[in-house]
Amino acid sequence: MPENLTIEVNGCELPAKAGMSVAAALFQAGEFRFRISASGQPRAALCGMGICFECRVTIDGQANCRSCQILVRDGMVIRTS
């Protein structure tokens, strides 16, 4: 059974499951704005395989992390822009 975890997204605590990618967890939480693009548009994951860089978010203070390539960890702090 997947282990239940807690992640923090933009200041709110949310449940997640071990083995989930950060991108999946964000969509799951209803967060459809992963980042703001160069011209100010909301963007979210496109390719799901680490190629398009649309899914970049700030994870534990580090900006520009590809959320589709990173698995959630308990207590992970995620910030979308």
Partner: peptide, 21 residues
């Protein structure tokens, strides 16, 4: 095509495989 929720076909599958309900 840049709207959130528009993904690749394989991209959407990958997201579901990585935990998206």
């Amino acid at each position: 095509w840049t709207l959130p929720g528009v993904m690749g076909a394989g991209g959407l599958q990958a997201l579901v495989k990585s935990g998206l309900g």
